[in-house]
Design a protein around this nucleic acid. Structure first.
Length: 312
DNA sequence: AACCTCAGCAACCGCCGGATG
DNA sequence: GCATCCGGCGGTTGCTGAGGT
């Protein structure tokens, strides 16, 4: 099977330049077409990989930090060889780079320490029986009224973390709905008794004006409301406060001004300003909450969401 | 200086699923 | 429903360069 020529010819600077320009000019075309237009003797697939792993502006080079290594180890223990998933949580790192890092460094390191790298306890999960990582986070929806306080959460549900959740949202449980964005006070039974667990309502029952204070299950989160409880919200979301906009669903990193200074109140942007790719890490006001992000900050996220990890 | 080893990186390959006609 | 195309993904392996002998 040996080929007389080099089997894996490296990309030259000239090829990179041509591909970069061609891709930049024809961003919407399929890769096979781009490869053809570029006039390179490379397949569309090769061009795509070269772009994704090297030429893309967001690609981060250089050594992995200890934090990145720890994140890889932790996520690998809970998600296995889902390199793309892990890479999503390491801004700028590609799945290929993460895979190489694991296969050629971290795995051997753990083996050398006598650690079973396939069974590393996840600090954010006591059982591994955690909500599946393809769900959006939605307070007040799909709440399990039968969840036992302090019990191990069943998939899709959260236990209350007294320190935080109880503090924040009345000691109730919060579930996850895969098709909804994050939305306080929407689809909540307006007639639920105070102190009870809010009951999700059907579409037909949906509150006409979800921002009408009198009908909110959690009136404290009404339009424009800022969290009043520093201890909790500050704790929960990395020290930043979030405001609410009545015409928008609450969506981490979507419609949020990417240029907002850290610690300031995020500014919703208009439709015309809307970030083209809301999950593009470089454009996120809160890149740590990007799509598919698995929190790495125990102190904060672990605390906030009952010790589990979630995707948004 | 020549050779060897090994870690790190890069590229290819096959499989799979979604979109489209 | 089926075939085809395309992109995404994970596994594998070749290439490179640094360091050791």
């Amino acid at each position: 099977m040996a080929r007389p020529e080099q089997q894996k010819p490296r990309w030259t600077e000239e090829e990179d330049r041509v591909l970069f320009e061609c891709k930049s000019r024809n961003d919407n075309l399929p890769w096979p077409v781009i490869a053809k237009l570029a006039g390179l003797s490379r397949s569309g697939k090769s061009c795509r990989e070269r772009w994704k792993n090297h030429l893309h502006p967001n690609v981060k080079r250089g050594n992995f930090s200890q934090e990145e290594d720890e994140t890889i180890i932790r996520l690998h223990s809970s998600h296995g060889n889902s390199w793309a998933f892990i890479a999503d949580r390491l801004p700028g790192r590609t799945d290929n780079a993460v895979k190489n890092r694991w296969n050629q460094h971290l795995k051997n390191k753990l083996i050398g320490r006598g650690i079973d790298h396939q069974n590393i306890p996840d600090p954010q999960s006591s059982t591994g029986d955690q909500p599946h990582a393809t769900q959006l986070f939605d307070f007040n929806h799909n709440i399990d009224p039968n969840a036992n306080s302090g019990s191990i959460p069943t998939p899709g549900y959260l236990p209350s973390d007294d320190e935080t959740i109880h503090h924040s949202f009345g000691g109730d449980y919060f579930g996850f709905e895969p098709t909804q964005l994050f939305d306080f006070n929407h689809n909540i039974d307006p007639y639920a008794s105070s102190g009870s667990i809010p009951t999700p309502v059907s579409a037909s029952q949906e509150i006409a004006n979800p921002w009408s204070t009198s009908q909110l299950a959690y009136p404290e989160f009404q339009r424009g409301c800022l969290p009043s409880d520093d201890e909790t919200i500050h704790h929960s979301f990395g020290g930043d406060y979030f405001g609410f906009e009545p015409t928008q669903l609450f969506d981490f990193n979507h419609n949020i001004d990417p240029n907002a200074s850290s610690g300031s109140i995020p500014t919703p942007v208009s439709a015309s300003q809307e970030i083209a790719n809301p999950w593009s890490t470089s454009q996120l006001a809160y890149p740590e909450f990007q799509k598919g992000y698995l929190p790495s900050d125990d102190e904060t996220i672990h605390h906030s969401f009952g010790g589990n990890s979630f995707e948004f």
